[in-house]
């Protein structure tokens, strides 16, 4: 079963009398455990598409299935529940909660979203800390760690709920070359370990290079779908 199935997906924004077509009749399918990148210039509709897949923004028309569920008409509460159960997010600015430690940031979705019991979530967080190589940093606050470490924490937070799908909007934009490369390697390793699907929107050629499937967008239209260098096929 495909993890994402989009059919004739459209997204229009209305500003006064002007209708901006951000995404135009886009159709694609993404299989589980893929490493997928949406690329294209600014304003091409990458982030909008990612937001729709992430159930943050409803499509104007067309249909969208994520993890086997039609998410087209979910209300805000149901889409929040769906996101909490199925989707992890990685943000360009890391978006860690400053008052929580690294451990607590990773733990947050297990407490506030999925309500795991204490012992089970402690084990899970420790497992994720180890997976992203932050075992000895759990007690630190976000302002006490580097940008690369913050993004590692964000990766761990996205995966801690055993999400089927992780959406990353420009995940390496605020990282230096070396760190960005490590983060990409980490995400790929996570994909291999947890069989999670990673979908990116990016300008970063290093990310594009590592993608197995690349969707090129221009003016809201899907131009090409190709296999990247990171793919086996």
């Amino acid at each position: 079963m495909s993890i994402v199935v989009a059919r004739q997906l459209c997204k229009d924004y209305v500003a006064g009398d002007i209708v901006v077509k951000a995404v135009r009749e886009v159709s694609f399918t993404i299989e589980p455990a893929s490493f997928v990148s949406f690329v294209g210039p600014s304003g091409s509709g990458k982030t909008t598409l990612l937001n729709m897949i992430g159930c943050l923004d409803p499509p104007s028309s067309g249909s969208l299935e994520v993890a086997g569920k039609d998410v087209t008409g979910l209300n805000s509460n149901k889409s929040a529940i769906f996101r909490g159960e199925n989707i992890g997010f990685i943000f360009q600015d890391f978006n860690l909660i400053p008052v929580l430690t690294v451990f607590e940031n990773i733990e947050y979705p297990l407490i506030m979203v999925q309500n795991w019991p204490v012992q089970k979530r402690k084990k899970q967080v420790e497992k994720m800390l180890e997976a992203v190589g932050m075992t000895d940093q759990g007690h630190k606050y976000p302002n006490q760690i580097s940008g690369g470490q913050k993004q590692r924490v964000a990766v761990a937070r996205a995966l801690v709920t055993n999400a089927k799908l992780v959406l990353a909007d420009e995940p390496t934009a605020n990282l230096d070359r070396k760190t960005a490369s490590r983060i990409i390697d980490l995400m790929k390793a996570m994909r291999d370990e947890f069989s999670t699907t990673f979908i990116f929107s990016t300008h970063d050629q290093r990310v594009v290079k590592n993608a197995e499937i690349i969707f090129r967008l221009e003016d809201g239209e899907l131009q090409t779908e190709s296999n990247g260098q990171g793919g086996d096929s």
């Binding site: 509460n77 929040a80 996101r83 909490g84 989707i87 997010f89 400053p98 947050y108 999925q114 709920t161």
Partner: peptide
């Protein structure tokens, strides 16, 4: 606001 966006995106229900 940004933090609210983050916790909402990762699945925190509006009621919470």
């Amino acid at each position: 606001i940004n933090e609210i966006g983050t916790i909402a995106a990762i699945g925190t229900k509006p009621g919470k």
